[in-house]
Design a protein around this nucleic acid. Sequence first.
DNA 1: AACCCGGGCGACCATCGGACGCTGGTGCC
DNA 2: GGCACCAGCGTCCGATGGTCGCCCGGGTT
Lengths: 237, 237
Amino acid sequence: EPHGDNTVILSQNNNYPLNLNTGTDPMLLLQNSGHLSTAVSGLMTLPDNNYCNDQQLKACKKQKRRRLKESGEDGEDRQREHPFIVTEPGELARGKKNGLDYLFDLYEQCGKFLLDVQHIAKERGEKCPTKVTNQVFRHAKHSGAGYINKPKMRHYVHCYALHCLDVEQSNRLRRTYKERGENVGAWRQACYYPLVDMAKENGWDIEGVFNKHEKLRIWYVPTKLRQLCHLEKSQQQ
Amino acid sequence: EPHGDNTVILSQNNNYPLNLNTGTDPMLLLQNSGHLSTAVSGLMTLPDNNYCNDQQLKACKKQKRRRLKESGEDGEDRQREHPFIVTEPGELARGKKNGLDYLFDLYEQCGKFLLDVQHIAKERGEKCPTKVTNQVFRHAKHSGAGYINKPKMRHYVHCYALHCLDVEQSNRLRRTYKERGENVGAWRQACYYPLVDMAKENGWDIEGVFNKHEKLRIWYVPTKLRQLCHLEKSQQQ
DNA sequence: AACCCGGGCGACCATCGGACGCTGGTGCC
DNA sequence: GGCACCAGCGTCCGATGGTCGCCCGGGTT
């Protein structure tokens, strides 16, 4: 049973979120303060998944995608990036994989691209973004950084956040997950909970947590993280 | 020759913007520092007015509008608000008109509605707007403030800005324009230039000028004002 | 070679900020 | 009453933030 990021599963009988991909509880792998997450009854699907389910529309979309692919200018397809694997700090990924240091460097690159965009905007007297926007991704692509794209960067923001806010804990988490042979998805899920802890210590203001950190301020707080904080807060008292 | 807000006209032979509605130069009415606006050659239309000019589309739109009006539920049309007139501070508008104190009060009301929306968002763990957004206008409408709407509020933001940042000057401007029997459009145009002055004193950072003021921070800087600042800056040196 | 797992990212959607210009209220003659 | 003026705001538009799930790379058998 595969599940996407939209499904956050909290176990019924203990206080920790359960990762279904591996069948192991990721929180057991963490030496954190460990008093998070009160009981939640059953599975929880957080987002209001209102995507259109119309059959014809879906078929149409699929056809369009195929058509684009086939007609595509003699197949000069951009290769997709190698997938990430869980690596220790400083470790280079072997084979056709990318490591997490590289992932985090992508966020630093985006920060630089944002600075570019801000300078250009100021020069032109246009409105000046404070966050990494579509415009920044477009600028990155035009500047030759075709390996940067919005869905990827948004997907791992909270992982980068943990890396920024508590390198020690982030590094520990990486080592632990690597050791146990967990996949990237499991590591990514696990990154949420230390952040919820930090939000708690900051009066549940996760936005504020991001804004206090120079490098984090430019990233939107992921919906999922905000929801987890809210859920946890309302369970707490 | 009527012209909309999209046309900013700078006279060729003096240093001040010219208001075409009245044929009088609004800057002559201002006792401000008065060293703004270097020469600009000829008429300037600031926005890139890329509106679709297709005939059929326009006809279609017009028909749609008419249809909506005709089919409209037995004509329980919302009456439009009385137009604003230039009033002195404290002066109540006579007849079927509204005064400028009332206009500015609308901005205060929007500020309150934003606070509501922020509280609700925080309660629900949703993302919390820092500016007056569509959502705030919707909330205002639902709360019975049907007289508040986005186009109106955006139209006069810079007038409210002047009122916030320098009541004295704002009041003087109102009195002068009233005295001379200028219409609201002329007064509104005149409000731009003192703000450009302030931006100049603030290193041309109009965004910063807005952000420093508690009540102004929640309003987007109008495009036109930003453009005027940019134009003025690039003429200056 | 065949298979399946899992994750990269193209493409979609609701909604946003922003603006135009029609419509009709209003005062004047 | 008729007319001309002008501004309120309904309605549109391009672009945004946000996300899904198709597709295929890659490792395993």
